[in-house]
Design a protein around this nucleic acid. Structure first.
Length: 544
DNA sequence: AATCATTGCCC
DNA sequence: GTACGGGCAATGATTC
């Protein structure tokens, strides 16, 4: 068992000793785990500079000395993708308040954030875990020769150190500071979790399990597995139902929108099965018998939005940003899954930025009519759009969102339940005359975004436009990215604005903050930027 | 065992 | 006949 060294220092035991006894103010860290699915910690690497560093396996006695460095809040610790490493290191109670993240820096400059790609910009090479495992013909990192693992880990930490030196002065200080301060907020929230109503989840389980078993038995009696789209397509075609082929032309489309149109009771049966299977397998069973629900919050999205993941298999974390709002349209008597999420105090404070994306579109495009609607304190944007366009409010809502996402007449027609595609197109043109500056902004976004290869948000985050998925997709990204990113920026500022309530934060869901207990939300949230972003606040005993 | 394909939940 | 942006994850089918 040993401490591994990578560098040119002639007397590395002495260097290690001085690292421990007189630690520098700035260190770069990297962790190694078994695999993405099994995030058992194998060891930690630390770089003192771009050229010197050490790796210590977890079972080496001196691992404690390395931990002491990671725990020391007076040391500035650089990670590449800090939320990942901090999740792995969570059981060791490392400090996450004085943490820098070089992946954040690269992302907000619009540069590739993967370490192997970024390494080139500092004249180094970093091998991906995948390629290293392939070259050694192993499937998990613990099967690598330990010296190989150590070298990779130290090298990654050194590259991280170099990336920090290179990019720290290139990023916008205020923007980067905002993201940096989120690291401990997200880690704290991930760690605390949300209280669950165990009894209610058990009730849900009993109810849906009975339904599920019944639907499954019926399908099996007919000789097919309702969980297999292939078999569902086959049996429905056999019963003389018409279904189109999927994109890949390999099987028939059996998604909800298609099956709903069929009058065949088997189609209905499959939909009922899928609904119960989804609720059970994805939400109810994983939470059954648990006192709390946990997640890991990330900031790796293209647009800088926060996302929620399970962070690998075999840990209790799960995505808490996609918990269903409704359980069953027909049976209102069945409680929702969200209602099993409880505050630790007597009630929830649920704060939600209302229609923030449309407000951002209005601001970015300076559309006069949109702005004037949003200026009035309780202006109903969808309602006004409806009357301006002389269409029902539900239609107006669909059009408004389709414009943000870059929808075309076909998708709009589908969403609105309109059979007349030409009419949908006519309404889209009417939307563009109703909000002419918004329409013009979208056009300019497309042209400039495609020409530059990237678009920018309100606060100046650069987002590369993806090219692999075709021109139409790229154009939609040119419109949607700045809107979605700016919404994320305002939301991240909001978390910061509420730092006095940090201990009460339990969940965040894109434009909603859920706090345990009764809290007054700051009026400043409506004016975090030049965009007026009012917040609706509700107090409830249960979530959802 | 890994990857693709399909489906579906959230904003 | 016609691609609506961003996430995460479960399942089955296919491939290695």
């Amino acid at each position: 068992m040993a401490v591994y060294h990578l560098g040119h220092h002639p007397n590395y035991p002495e260097l290690f000793h001085s690292l421990i006894t007189e630690p520098p103010k700035l260190l770069a860290f990297d962790t190694e785990v078994v695999s993405l699915d099994n995030r058992k910690l194998l060891g930690v690497g630390v770089a003192i500079s771009g050229g010197e560093g050490f790796y210590v396996p977890v079972d080496e006695p001196r691992f404690l000395s390395i931990l002491a460095l990671a725990r020391d809040s007076s040391i500035q610790k650089i990670y590449h993708n800090a939320p990942f490493d901090l999740r792995v290191l969570r059981p060791h109670q490392v400090d996450c308040s004085n943490v820098d993240d070089t992946a954040f820096m690269l992302r907000l400059l619009g540069l590739p954030a993967s370490l192997d790609e970024a390494a080139i910009s500092v004249g180094r090479e970093a091998q991906t875990a995948k390629s290293l495992m392939e070259s050694h013909k192993v499937h998990t990192m613990d099967k690598l020769p330990q010296s190989e693992l150590a070298n990779k880990c130290i090298n990654d930490a050194q590259v991280t150190y170099l990336l920090y030196e290179k990019y720290k002065d290139l990023v916008s200080p205020s923007y980067y500071a905002m993201e940096r301060r989120l690291i401990p907020r997200l880690e704290d929230m991930s760690q605390v979790g949300v209280k669950l109503d165990t009894d209610r989840i058990e009730e849900l389980y009993q109810h849906y399990n009975r339904e599920y078993a019944w639907y499954l038995t019926q399908c099996q009696g007919m000789g097919f597995n309702p969980g297999s789209p292939q078999q569902v397509g086959y049996i429905l075609a056999e019963r003389e139902n018409f279904l189109p082929f999927t994109k890949s032309k390999k099987q028939l489309s059996t998604d909800e929108s298609h099956l709903r149109r069929l009058s065949d009771p088997v189609a209905r049966l499959v939909l009922l099965y899928r609904h119960t299977a989804k609720l059970l397998n994805t939400y109810i069973i994983p939470l059954r018998g648990k006192d709390r629900a946990y997640t890991t919050f990330h900031m790796e999205a293209l647009t800088g939005r926060i996302s929620s993941t399970s962070a690998g298999k075999g840990n209790p974390d799960r995505n808490l940003m996609n918990i269903p709002k409704k359980t069953d349209l027909a049976q209102a008597a069945i409680p929702t899954i969200r209602s099993a999420f409880l505050p630790d105090h007597n009630e929830w404070t649920i704060a939600d930025f209302s229609q923030i994306e449309l407000r951002i579109l209005a601001y970015l495009s300076r559309d006069q009519r949109m702005l004037s609607i949003f200026q009035s304190p309780d202006g109903d944007f969808h309602g006004v759009t409806a009357s301006e366009m002389r269409i029902p409010r539900d239609f107006a809502k669909i059009f408004n969102f389709a414009m943000i996402y870059g929808g075309n007449e076909y998708t709009v027609a589908t969403n609105a339940g309109m059979s007349d595609v030409a009419l949908a197109k006519k309404y889209m043109l009417r939307w563009m005359t109703t909000y002419p500056q918004a329409a013009q902004w979208m056009m300019v976004q497309k042209i400039e975004g495609i020409r530059n290869g990237y678009v920018e948000s309100l606060l100046g985050r650069k987002m590369p436009i993806p090219t692999e998925q075709g021109r139409a997709h790229a154009e939609h990204c040119c419109i949607n990215f700045p809107i979605q990113c700016t919404a994320g920026e305002i939301f991240k500022m909001a978390i910061q604005e509420c730092s006095n309530l940090a201990d009460s934060f339990r969940l965040i869901v894109h434009d909603e903050m859920d706090l345990s207990g009764h809290h007054q939300m700051s009026d400043a949230l409506a004016h975090l930027t030049d965009i007026y972003t009012p917040v609706g606040v509700e107090y409830r005993a249960r979530w959802g």
